[in-house]
Amino acid sequence: MSEPTTRAANMAEAARALRQVSRAKPVEILFWLLALASFLFLPDQYLLLNEVAITGLFALSLDLVIGYGGIVSLGHAAFFGFGCYLAGLLTKFGVPDPLMGLAIAAVGTGVLGFVTSFLVLRGSDLTRIMVTISIAVLLGEIANRLPGLTGGADGLQGVAPGLLLGRFEFDIFGQVAYGYSLAVTFVLFLIARRFIFSPFGWSIRAVKQNALRTSSIGIHVNRRLVVAYTLAAAYAGVAGALLAQTTSFVSLDVLAFHRSADLLLILIIGGTGYLYGGLVGALLFKVIQDFLANLTPEYWEFWIGMLLVALVLIGRDRVTGLPAMLIGKFRRA
């Protein structure tokens, strides 16, 4: 067919191209170096940064569902809240070790995700939206109706996790808290990244692009989505568990609708389908939220809503591309 030499060259080129996709880019290394620098040099922002890291992990989880799986979910807080309560209760009732709590929360939420995935994956986008909202509302109702266990509307108080790794005590400045959240987020990010570039992750991306063709090359589409949804649920559960452990408090708010909706916004601001969208979005969202809350404390949601509408109508690419475009014009001028 072709000369042996061209074939060898083609082989090398194909192998290179396939490796290239999953290779860490310099900007990624820079990103995590900056995250590390924030831990080393921003001690007075630990509490805020801790929240950003947790929200970022939570949004990464939603990215696995929406950005990679193509499943529109408006109830992702169900898993976050479930993990949050699970970790809080574990800490209160006999498992003070944070990492153990985290692991149990991950498994428990994963099981919840696995079971509910069969409900969610049936039906159209509309029924998916409804079912995901409903599952979150149901869990919220349960938490609300069991005040003996969850503290009901008062929230679960007195969550006091033990020493991290048997050595570090959670301090009031949030140093250990942020270090812990950042480290967990980093490790889970690496696992997600590995997952996405594996043949399995590849097949999930294929499903989103063309489910018909994916099934026509012999891949069971629904089974793939079940796995993606379960993994994402476990991630959200870990994020929730981190929140419970690092803030020593769980409120009904962790299951609220606006949390799922805000999360969607975060992901859209940051961008879907490249893994960093959730982390970047979480940081931007926090900044925007603080800015708006200072401007109009009671009505900041209005501006968030307007941002959502604008992002859709104008197109996300054009909004985020604006700074780059302006710089380009400036240079040409």
Binding site: V21, R194, F197, S198, P199, S203, I217
Partner: peptide
């Protein structure tokens, strides 16, 4: 094509190797 080949070789359920490895 890589996805289809991985599927045929039964590698498509692997979650921790990269596709071209």
């Amino acid at each position: 094509v890589g996805l289809a080949v991985s599927r045929r070789l039964g590698l498509d359920r692997n979650m921790f190797r990269t596709i071209g490895s």
